[in-house]
């Protein structure tokens, strides 16, 4: 069984994000990059399936600049078997649809039984790449899964996911694309031997030419959308701290402000 886990490298959630001198980009200096937290769920789920199905192999697939190799190494240290790193300078600034096209090209001609991904990436929050990849590969998909059970023959699965006000149980035939939501598992931390072993695992690099893509398929040219400008969100004014002599009076004042000033009640 061939399982692929999609991993994207993103700025750590606590990073302070600054806009660079090119207002379409963010400053990378000083940022700590990590594996997208939702992708940790994908890698963990892949490894757990591998632990159940002896013939299974887990490949971590990432499209991103040179630094993104660290996130592949992290997946390898957690227990993935090999890495696929798709990068070419031509991919710079591409949107989610173009990224999905690159990932589809990386998987073309390979045996695929299951593709696990994160629900969304915490940098661009596109919710786009896995679904577009599923479409490009002609595979079914289930997004936002909190529980995944594979049939014993590995040919189908049952997935659970939360929707507004309820939970859906989805039957899916494999191969398929599944995105993982918090709750599906608790990702393991890589062990020290795991980190050592990761260094020796196979890591395949794929460039534009090796992927069989043209420059018009990727980067800004291959992207139907593009960022024109980044800006900081409008500052929220400091809270009006309500401190009357008694809590009762403060609370009454708060209610008055909500009604008369903020007009939200």
């Amino acid at each position: 069984m061939e399982i692929f886990a999609l991993v994207k490298q993103v700025p750590d959630s606590v990073s302070e994000i600054r806009i660079s001198s090119d207002p379409r980009r963010t400053e990378e200096a000083g940022i700590k990059f990590v594996m997208n937290p939702f992708d940790e769920f994908a890698v963990e789920e892949a490894i757990r399936i591998k632990e159940r199905f002896v013939d299974a192999r887990v490949t971590a697939l990432c499209c991103g600049p040179e630094r993104a190799v660290e996130s592949i190494r992290m997946a390898l240290a957690m227990g993935a078997d090999r890495g696929l790193h798709a990068w070419d300078p031509a991919f710079q600034d591409q949107d989610g649809i173009a990224t999905a096209r690159v990932l589809a090209a990386a998987l073309k001609g390979r045996a695929v039984d299951l593709i696990l991904a994160g629900k969304h990436a915490i940098d661009d929050v596109n919710h786009t790449v896995p679904s577009a990849l599923a479409e490009f590969l002609g595979l079914p998909q289930v997004n936002g899964v909190t529980r995944l059970e594979l049939a014993a023959d590995g040919k189908s699965a049952t997935a659970r996911r939360r929707i507004e006000g309820g939970e859906e149980i989805v039957d899916v035939l494999l191969p398929a694309v599944i995105t993982c939501e918090k709750g599906i598992n608790d990702p393991r931390y890589p062990s020290l031997p795991g980190l050592m072993k990761a260094k020796k695992k196979e890591l395949e690099r794929l460039t534009l030419a090796q992927l069989g893509l043209a420059t018009s398929d990727v980067g800004l040219e291959g992207s139907p959308t593009r960022v024109t400008r980044l800006s900081p969100p409008p500052p929220r004014s400091q809270a009006k701290i309500i401190a009357r002599p008694t809590l009762e009076e403060s609370v009454a004042e708060l209610v008055r402000l909500l009604q008369e000033e903020a007009k939200v009640l």
Binding site: T26, D123, V227, T228, L230, S231, P233
Partner: peptide, 10 residues
């Protein structure tokens, strides 16, 4: 984008 730390014009 970036956890609402940045607004992007697209």
């Amino acid at each position: 984008m970036f956890l609402d730390k940045i607004l992007a014009d697209v």
